[in-house]
Amino acid sequence: MAEQTQIVIRWWHFALIGVMILMFVMFAAGLGRDTRFIPSPLIGKPAYDFKLKQLRADKEISLSDFKGTAVVLNFWASWCVACRDEHHVLLESAKKYTGKPVQFLGVNSKDTKKAAIGFMEQRGFFPYPSVVDGQGRLGLEYGVYGMPETFFINEKGIIVAKHIGALTPEIVEKNIGLTGALEQRAVSISDDASSKKEVRQ
């Protein structure tokens, strides 16, 4: 029992230790991340142009109507829980960016008109139009996984950012900054110079 044999170093010792370290590093790196985040291949590509009926008006809207301004395209539905969480963020942001070259646009997907209007009646109407995307076909064009998802499109019609899940004021501000809409027109719009700095930051 007492005699000590030396440790004999073998190649598999290194293999075993290597594999273990590799796995544990990978798990540790994997722990903190958001599993819901899936990068979109559409970033940097032209946004799909559509022509759809509005939720609260009979006129059709198409994305190309807003050429020249940045567009915040928000997919939502009355049954989606996170849409309730981000509702006030959208209201406030839309108000904050009035008068700036940023157009908010809602896409009401896989919903009924009655439920969607009821949702807004209860929580406040969006100060911008929403289009109706009946069975979610537009959602497929935009590679929408679940709702809510928000696309940030620059004035040239290129998608510059996508956010999955509920928006926060910071996320809206950061991504609108990415569209470059505020930098260009900052000269002509004088009332809020401070926001420009924040955005560039």
Partner: peptide
């Protein structure tokens, strides 16, 4: 299926999957 994360679009009954099949 984008929302089920394990099933194929064909096997899923989720709305997105149904619309994908239609498309």
């Amino acid at each position: 299926c984008p929302v089920c994360q394990g099933e194929s679009v064909y096997d899923s009954h989720a709305d997105v999957a149904v619309e994908m099949k239609t498309l």
